[in-house]
Design a protein around this nucleic acid. Sequence first.
DNA 1: GGAGATCGTTGCGCTAGCGCAAATTCGGAC
DNA 2: GTCCGAATTTGCGCTAGCGCAACGATCTCC
Lengths: 226, 226
Amino acid sequence: MHIELLRRCQYFADLPDQTLAAAAAAAQLRRVPTGDFIFRQGESASHFYVLAEGHARLSQISPEGRQIIMGLIGPPIEIGIIAAIQGAVYPLDLQATQDCQALAWEHRTLIRLLESHPMLALRALRMVSGRFVELQDRYRELATERVERRLARALLRLVNQSGRPDGDDVTIALPLARQDLAELTGTTLYTVSRTLSAWESSGIIRSGRERVTLCDLPRLSEIAEG
Amino acid sequence: MHIELLRRCQYFADLPDQTLAAAAAAAQLRRVPTGDFIFRQGESASHFYVLAEGHARLSQISPEGRQIIMGLIGPPIEIGIIAAIQGAVYPLDLQATQDCQALAWEHRTLIRLLESHPMLALRALRMVSGRFVELQDRYRELATERVERRLARALLRLVNQSGRPDGDDVTIALPLARQDLAELTGTTLYTVSRTLSAWESSGIIRSGRERVTLCDLPRLSEIAEG
DNA sequence: GGAGATCGTTGCGCTAGCGCAAATTCGGAC
DNA sequence: GTCCGAATTTGCGCTAGCGCAACGATCTCC
């Protein structure tokens, strides 16, 4: 049931049943096969989504064609609120990297829900605010930290979010190419490859094609935090 | 009157009188002399502000002590909502670079206003969303663009926000050291100085101690946009 | 199980930008 | 007017990271 999904969302978890029920009733389920776009940068922001199944990639492409990845996301997560609330265009691509299912609310439905359920609007505000602070931290990181540290932090974030225990180690349970890591951290696939190779020699990680396993979290954390 | 100020705020401008009056009635005026902090990074986020008079600097300092500037702001502007809504700590310093006056709402007052005026909550959501998109653009810029382009864009942003006509040219009406520009664009004061010197030789700008005047906007825009 | 495509590695040269240090300019205080 | 401190400029050497190119590894699809 949709309401169960909403209850697992970080920012909606403790809303009253009645509010969640109203929200759930207004949602439509959308299925998106691997590789398809849930929405595309520049498209009119018609819907707000809660991702229910499958992983997806949030990316942005610069006018010169260089892509950056803003996030690799997995369920349950609220997404598209920023564009949908403004009635603007999506500022990002969201591409399914697995078969996905998402609850969708149309722009007008969303506005109506937020107007009639002030608690919901407050939660949405908290959610966007939380995302803002995270982005601000990444911005500072990019402005002030070396590649090595940014990469270490990206791996730790990913393992927190999508880690799967693997003996004493933890594998990031996402297909994760060197190019992806480069676009997540603002560097190039060459530098990522060289850095991972060095870490693999020192036993901090193991890695393979589109796969990274963290073996020595303390040492990686030390690189990440200084 | 406070309500007049709110009506000049981008995101509150067209709210009904009744809503603005309720908000204005709950505000307190706070005066902050030049150099003092309106709030500090890590402080409990007790208030939401609307800056009414004077300019201020939003900055963040990294654990290693390197500072970055997130923005140089002038009235009227809404500020601190992100921290105040979460009841968290301010993620930034806000320092008065002139004598400032600001309307202040206490955390609980803000929450109460947002709960009882859904339109207000929606506007706040739009505001934070707009800021998010701007920050995301700066993030992409930092990840993908050269210093020269980032600097050109920063100057154009500043002149849009605080430009004062000066004959055929436009001067940025803020004390603006090379160090400030460096911290705004994620580079060093040396690179800023060298770049500005080169631009001055080609007649794109004029500059002096803590002062920059743009002379050739088309050429600067071309550097900024490619 | 072979061919082709995709992904990853690494040598090598290069460049954008860093950052020290010294010189210079500017503004304000007295 | 003079002095002092802060801001700026610029020479110089350096390095982190870029990016090409060539090669190697791995997966997938017949």
